[in-house]
């Protein structure tokens, strides 16, 4: 359709009723797909090929800073032989799980309130306000927390002012709690949006019917609401968990030495020109993502980006 080459065949096409044309010429069929050509170059050459390359690299060897095409699992063996790395993997999973759960726990009551108690005409504007920070630079959103958590930051000032501490506490910065806090901040809009989208479609009369029949509010939430918004919950989990797994900047800026995640290991490997080891570590993240997507595949099938 997007191509002039289909022009010649068009009148025949038009004569047909609105249903699909019965037969199409060769040029028309090529014309139909020609719009994909630039995308195939972009996503094929610069997305799929590089990802395949990373897979290969993770099974190749680095000898004297040169990559040798010799198939081996040494990179993985090496990775798992270093206790610090293994610990980092577990820490990454732990941080990702905790941050995801916290994000959902923070976002759910909010989305519930927005969908159920806010008059419809205000819902949209309140939602826009939630996404507003999300439209600003990702780097700056992480950076802005340094102003709050740092030794001279707002938090320490506040504690000092209340007299709880007389020395600046560095506890807030450079450890896992700081990483988790900032991650919740970064990914809250994702969760709030997805949860709101599914709560908005929920028929609250069912809720009341359940309570009329003697259910407590908690039971009604658990037995009526949760099963119906499960696809939304799954989407939220996926959209929060996956990017967190590959986080580099947050642990780098607010995590310090104790907040390291796999992303930081990968960057260190690549900056040290250890491409093959870095590739193995990167593939570990990819494997975790695939695992997660397989686990949630059934719920995902319900979702369709264009609603076809």
């Amino acid at each position: 359709m997007a191509s002039p080459s289909s022009e010649a065949t068009q009148p025949a096409d038009v004569a047909l009723p609105l249903g699909r044309p019965a037969r199409r010429s060769w040029t028309a069929r090529v014309g139909e797909y020609v719009g994909f050509a630039p995308a195939i170059v972009l996503f094929g050459l610069f997305f799929l090929v590089p990802l395949g390359l990373i897979v290969c690299y993770s099974f190749w060897q680095t000898v004297d800073y040169n990559v040798v095409h010799h198939w081996t699992v040494d990179n993985y063996r090496y990775f798992f032989s270093v206790p610090t790395y293994v610990k980092t993997v577990w820490a990454t999973i732990w941080v990702s799980v905790v941050a995801t759960l916290l994000t959902l726990a923070v976002a759910f009551p909010f989305a519930y309130w927005l969908a159920r108690y806010v008059p419809r005409r205000y819902q949209k504007i309140l939602l826009v306000l939630v996404i507003l920070p999300f439209w600003t630079s990702y780097l700056l959103r992480v950076y802005s927390w340094l102003n709050i958590l740092g030794a001279q930051g707002a938090m320490n000032r506040f504690l000092h002012w209340t007299g709880l501490t007389d020395q600046p506490v560095s506890f807030f910065l450079y450890d896992r709690p700081a990483v988790i806090l900032v991650l919740v901040y970064l990914y809250f809009p994702f969760a709030a949006l997805t949860l709101y989208a599914s709560l908005e479609r929920f028929d609250w009369n069912q809720f009341r019917a359940a309570m009329d029949l003697g259910a407590t509010p908690a039971t009604a939430v658990r037995r009526i609401l949760l099963p119906q918004i499960r696809p939304g919950l799954t989407t939220a989990v996926i959209f929060v968990f996956i990017p967190i797994l590959g986080e580099y900047l947050t642990p780098q800026l607010v995590g310090g030495a104790r907040g390291v995640m796999i992303g930081n290991l990968i960057v260190n490997f690549f900056q040290g020109a250890q491409y093959t080891r870095g590739a193995a570590a990167a593939l570990l993240i990819a494997a975790l993502i695939v695992l997660l997507l397989t686990l949630f595949r059934r719920s995902l099938e319900v979702e369709d980006p264009y609603g076809t």
């Binding site: 997305f47 390359l53 996956i242 992303g263």
Partner: peptide, 10 residues
């Protein structure tokens, strides 16, 4: 969907 880190290094 995938972390930008993976796009960058690949």
């Amino acid at each position: 969907m995938i972390p930008g880190l993976l796009i960058g290094i690949s």
